[in-house]
């Protein structure tokens, strides 16, 4: 006679096996395309064009080199410059605002915050088209600065909200202790609040960098010769052989993968904030 206490464990283990299968399948669904595309980016052309080699056996750097020679080297550099400028601009403007939202009570705070939240939902890509006219007048068309200014518009609402929530998480008692021991507001901010907020701010900066690095529509509209990497891929690399395109996708995702690894602890909460 089997006691009821003993039957569940068997079902329990069966369920666990099925469950493990589902987990593995889900992870494969995400990882497999990335792994394959990276392998193909380094595949020798013979292996790629041979129907037999599902996974390439011979690897080469020549795809990457050819892509860089086509102009991707400069485009990558441009992308980095634009992204760094975007981070600097959006933090210079957004950090003080974020601090104000976190630490002050003032009239109109809620409506202002709501406005920022609303602006974050705004499809920023639409500003690129009319901006061209302004940029031509100002001599900003086809410049990296011009792209960075547009990207700053896109990143700014996010930076304000995220820095505000980071500052909120720094206990106010620690700041008050600073005042008690004779620091003024500025000193307290620089010596107490900022160091405590630094890890979160770094993650937010990384995130902003990626945002700009990935943006393609504005970059493609606002540049002609000074292409950023995604704009370059869209306009030039699409005519190149397949294997060169894979190299392009590798360069595109490389910083993203590195940064996911560095900032992974913050990633979920950060996206949580951007979309809440």
């Amino acid at each position: 006679m089997s006691t009821p206490g003993e039957t569940p464990p068997i079902r329990y283990y069966l369920l666990r096996i099925v469950f493990a299968g589902i987990v593995i399948l889900s992870c494969t669904w995400v990882l497999l395309p990335i792994i394959i595309s990276i392998l193909y980016a380094f595949s020798s052309p013979q292996d790629f064009y041979s129907p037999k080699e599902i996974i390439p056996l011979h690897y080469t750097l020549s795809n990457i080199q050819k892509l860089l020679a086509l102009g991707a080297a400069r485009a990558t550099m441009n992308s980095i410059i634009v992204a760094v400028m975007t981070v600097i601009f959006s933090f210079a403007l957004g950090l003080p605002a974020g601090y104000a939202f976190a630490r002050f009570a003032f009239k109109g705070k809620d409506s202002l915050k709501l406005l920022i939240i609303g602006l974050r939902m705004f499809p920023m890509l639409v500003i690129a088209i009319p901006l061209v006219t302004l940029y031509i007048k100002l001599g900003l068309n086809d410049t990296l600065l011009g792209v960075a200014l547009a990207h700053t518009t896109m990143a700014l609402p996010f930076v304000i909200l995220i820095t505000s929530s980071i500052f909120v998480s720094v206990p106010i008692e620690l700041e008050e202790a600073g005042y008690v021991f004779g620091l003024d507001r500025k000193q307290t901010f620089l010596r107490i609040t900022l160091p405590l907020a630094l890890p979160g701010l770094t993650a937010a900066a990384i995130f902003t960098f990626i945002m700009s690095w990935n943006e393609v529509f504005m970059a493609a509209v606002l540049t002609l010769t000074n292409r950023t990497l995604p704009a370059f891929i869209l306009t030039s690399a699409m005519a190149a052989p397949d294997i060169i395109k894979f190299a392009a996708s590798f360069i595109m995702i490389l910083p993203a993968l590195i940064f996911v690894f560095i900032a992974r602890r913050y990633l979920v909460s950060m996206w949580g904030i951007t979309v809440r």
């Binding site: 987990v23 889900s26 992870c27 995400v30 990882l31 395309p33 990335i34 394959i36 595309s37 193909y40 980016a41 790629f48 064009y49 129907p51 599902i54 990626i210 690095w213 990935n214 943006e215 393609v216 995604p230 891929i233 869209l234 397949d242 395109k245 894979f246 392009a248 996708s249 595109m252 995702i253 993203a256 993968l257 940064f259 996911v260 992974r264 990633l267 979920v268 996206w271």
Partner: peptide, 29 residues
Amino acid sequence: ALYILIIPLTISDVAGGLIWYSLLTANGF
């Protein structure tokens, strides 16, 4: 598993398109 599932968050639409191109093209995976 959580980290793996959120990796695509940081991948751009252009790169995402290219990755699937490498899987689906005639000589693709």
